[in-house]
Computed example of a mutant assay.
Amino acid sequence: MSLDPAEVIRGVLADLDVAWEEPSPGTFVVTLPGERKLRTTCTLRVGAQAVGVHAFVVRRPDENHEAVYRFLLERNGRLRGVAFAVDHLGDIHLVGQLPRPAVTPEEIDHVLGAVLEAADSSFNRILELGFTSAIRREWAWRTARGESTANLEAFRRLRPAGIEGDPTAGDGPSPGRR
């Protein structure tokens, strides 16, 4: 007899050092802390046949869509349990399904780890590819105003020509936080 997937998920989440809630029976919203992406919100939803996994990664890229989607498709080939997907607006998500009989503490831990690793490790590259112009405009605007560019340091190679170091670069949040 297999365990109730919701009970398995509750048990795993109780043991992890992450914020989570169960807004309705069988629906779990988990906040996964990252390094490049400050947090990734992941929803686990127990269905009749499977546990659905969903996490928003980043809004629709402003530019260079082909390169962004190529990067995501190439990345999908190395993922297990989740895959990058694009919704009708072009926003980027991670999605997956775990068949109910396969729901074990190890698999729930794995899928949460896969979501966190995929979102966090891909975040800056997605921003570089899909938001280059916005990053350059932000760098120029902050420099012109004497504002800190500390959270742009991960994108230093994208700074506009002629803009040198930032005297306040040590201030502010870490790179790429969203």
Rank of each mutant, 00 (worst) to 15 (best):
V58H: 13
V58E: 08
R59N: 12
R60N: 13
E63I: 06
E66T: 10
E66A: 14
A67D: 11
A67W: 01
V68N: 07
Y69F: 15
Y69D: 00
F71G: 01
F71I: 03
F71P: 02
L73F: 10
R75V: 00
L79V: 09
L79I: 06
L79G: 05
R80Y: 10
R80Q: 10
G81H: 10
F84K: 03
F84V: 04
F84M: 06
F84L: 04
D87Y: 00
D87V: 00
D91K: 03
I92T: 08
H93P: 00
L94T: 04
V95E: 14
Q97H: 11
L98I: 15
P99L: 10
V103C: 08
E107R: 15
I108W: 07
I108C: 05
D109N: 11
D109C: 05
V111P: 06
L112M: 09
L112Y: 08
G113T: 02
G113L: 03
A114K: 03
V115Q: 04
A119P: 12
A119G: 11
A119C: 12
A119E: 12
S121I: 01
S122K: 10
F123K: 03
F123E: 05
L127P: 01
L129Q: 06
G130V: 02
F131V: 09
T132P: 02
A134H: 09
R136Q: 15
R136H: 02
R137D: 14
A140T: 13
W141D: 14
R142G: 09
R142T: 13
A144N: 08
E147A: 09
E147C: 01
E147I: 00
N151P: 03
L152E: 06
L152V: 08
E153T: 13
E153L: 14
E153R: 12
A154Y: 11
A154S: 14
A154F: 07
A154G: 15
F155A: 05
R156Y: 03
R156W: 04
R157Q: 12
